[in-house]
Simulated scan of single mutants.
Amino acid sequence: MNWVFCALDVKFRTQKEFWGVTAQEFKNNATLTTIDGPSGENITLATITSDNEDVAKFARMSDCDVIVLGSSRGLVQIFRKGTSKIDLTSVMRTLRIEERRANNLPDPEPPDWTALSAEGRVEGAEVWHFFISQNGNGSAQSILNGSLSAPNATPTKLGLTRVSELVQITLGRGFEPTRANRCIAKVCSHSTGNPCPWFAWGLERCRAIHHK
């Protein structure tokens, strides 16, 4: 990840006076992870705990494609770089399923991936809000568990570490570890009697195998 920090150093030096403490906080505390994307592209993920929402703004101006920002209260927000073409819809589906599981709710059967992809909030995972807005470059997306306008929101039960892990899995190209060999061979082992824990997320790569 040295190249990322080199790029951040350039950003930091040129904008130091403007960003000040925010830039230094991000540089010191963010964890940067490279995700091997579904088409072989590198996706840079920044994960950081901060109560300074300008941290996410700074991260979006850097070379980070996706930012997972946690607060001291346990709230979590997910943003993408303004110029990014990454679609966060699949991440929203995954988080909603996992939040339902954390609330001891059963997986929808059959899974309604359209409903799980909906803008706003959905039943069983109300702590998450999927925000989509149209702009000149297409659509802007963010996934919000609380925000400046909702500081007293209920924190997710998943926690920052798990949310970051789920983002990495969803935006990556891997398969559920205990079934990966069959998945790579394009044989889906999911069934009602032998459910795959990833199936309910509706990952495109999994659906392509299951419905082939």
Rank of each mutant, 00 (worst) to 15 (best):
M1W: 14
D9V: 10
R13T: 12
T14V: 13
T14H: 13
N28W: 12
N28G: 08
N29Y: 09
T34N: 13
I35E: 04
I43N: 08
L45N: 02
T49Y: 10
S50K: 02
S62Y: 06
D63T: 10
D65W: 00
V68S: 01
L69K: 05
R73M: 10
G74D: 04
R80M: 07
K85Q: 11
D87S: 00
T89Q: 03
V91T: 05
R93I: 04
N103D: 02
P106D: 08
P111E: 06
T114W: 14
L116C: 03
G120K: 01
E123K: 10
G136Q: 12
G138M: 01
S139G: 10
A140S: 12
S142A: 13
I143H: 00
L148C: 11
A153R: 04
A153S: 11
L160F: 08
T161M: 14
Q168R: 15
E176T: 13
R179W: 10
A180D: 08
N181R: 15
C183H: 05
V187R: 13
C188A: 07
S189Y: 10
H190R: 00
T192N: 12
P195E: 05
P195K: 00
W198C: 02
W201E: 00
G202F: 03
C206P: 06
A208K: 15
I209Q: 06
H211V: 13
